[in-house]
Design a protein around this nucleic acid. Structure first.
Lengths: 220, 220
DNA sequence: TTCTGTGAATTGTTTCACAGCC
DNA sequence: GGCTGTGAAACAATTCACAGAA
């Protein structure tokens, strides 16, 4: 059983290893890989230790071998079919995102409730009516769905996805969706990320203010 | 000093409170708010306790009052000016995202290195050359920048942002960027989120396999 | 000697359970 | 009686520090 925090970092290691491999590097130390991934080496080694012993003491890790082991652990040695629902600005961006294709995912359908959009080609894939969801999900055995609709539609879309057999949902809509036991949801929310930054930014401003005040105050 | 895990949830509570307020609800219990935010009530109360005592025992929380207190704590009672660099598909989607405006952020400029894009209007804001970054950042006192460029450009953009006085960066490029002490970076990576789902999906598949095997095996 | 793999210590987060206030 | 606020307990993640393999 791999800790959740480790699972969330494995894709980062995978990407870093791919970058190293593309740079022609065949072997790396935990220090090298950790710095490419933006973590410290103790954490990296601990994380990798949950997968097994894929390194060599005194030497390091074979880049290709470790890359394969992580890809296998994550489950991206084969492609996962994915549907995207909601082809607005964000849906367009997602459909065009080439990183999906190269990292283990294949967009098998783009769905939108607006029938005026039907037939429109986005990244070479035709937009289809949302009602085709069940047919597509069962035809392609889709387990992963992406919601890129407005917040108001998100729960309905999620319900339909679950009914159609989808058991993992990536939700970009700014809404909390509830799903049955056994279905995983991950949420990406742009304005929440910015608000977290704003909080720290505000604290930095206070900090500076205090330092300035202290400097002005001098040694009174 | 508010724990980081709590800080990351405050924006979720803020959004849930806004939804309650829009539904005409003036008072709510920790249970109500927790369920609107998708967390359990003990965690919610513990989180809110770091901000102060803004509830009333036996009654609950005043929605508007708590909303204001959280907004103040996060620092979104006034707007933060933001620049977006990289106006490709994702940059377009971000520029058009209305949640920015309504949640404490104002896009003051869209920048792109491709000069053919200069002047193009996106969501009513003209695209400007990347080299205008310093002028814009100092004119609007921009502290927060968004990177929506390809991975290869991300580090350069981050360096220029930091030099221009930006101290918080939201990075959508699939690359690790390094910044000096005192600069915050948050990363949003679409394919990493999908890979995390894939990991759990794969485990569910194994689990099912085992259950099926056990069922077939019966009580042998 | 170098660098991995990992117990042990530390630090952070969540959950429990109830005292205290309305 | 109902619900918040919070110590204390349980759990999870990170970091330390070093034994041991190459």
């Amino acid at each position: 059983m791999i800790p959740e925090a480790t699972v969330a970092r494995l894709p980062v290691y995978l990407r870093a290893l791919t970058a190293l491999a593309e740079g022609g590097i065949r072997t790396c130390s935990s220090e090298d890989l950790a710095s490419a991934a933006g973590v410290n080496s103790a954490k990296l080694r601990k994380d990798l230790s949950y997968l097994g012993s894929y390194g060599t003491r005194g030497v390091g890790y074979d880049v290709d071998y470790l890359r394969y082991q992580i890809a296998r652990e994550i489950g991206v040695t084969h492609d996962w079919p994915v549907v995207i629902v909601g082809i607005g600005n964000l849906g367009h961006a997602l459909a065009n995102y080439s990183g999906f294709r190269s990292r283990g995912f294949r967009v098998v359908a783009l769905l939108d409730a607006d029938l005026d959009r039907t037939g429109e080609l986005v990244a070479g894939v035709p937009v289809r009516p949302f009602d085709d969801l069940e047919a597509i999900a069962s035809e392609h055995a889709v387990a992963i769905g992406v919601i890129a609709t407005p917040a108001a539609a998100a729960q309905d879309v999620a319900d339909r996805m679950v009914a159609a057999g989808v058991t993992s949902i990536l939700n970009f809509a700014p809404a909390v969706i509830s799903v049955p036991e056994g279905v995983d949801v991950r949420k990406v929310d742009l304005s929440i990320e910015l608000q977290i930054l704003a909080y720290h930014e505000q604290r930095k401003a206070h900090e500076t203010g205090r330092e300035v005040a202290a400097a002005i105050g001098g040694d009174q």
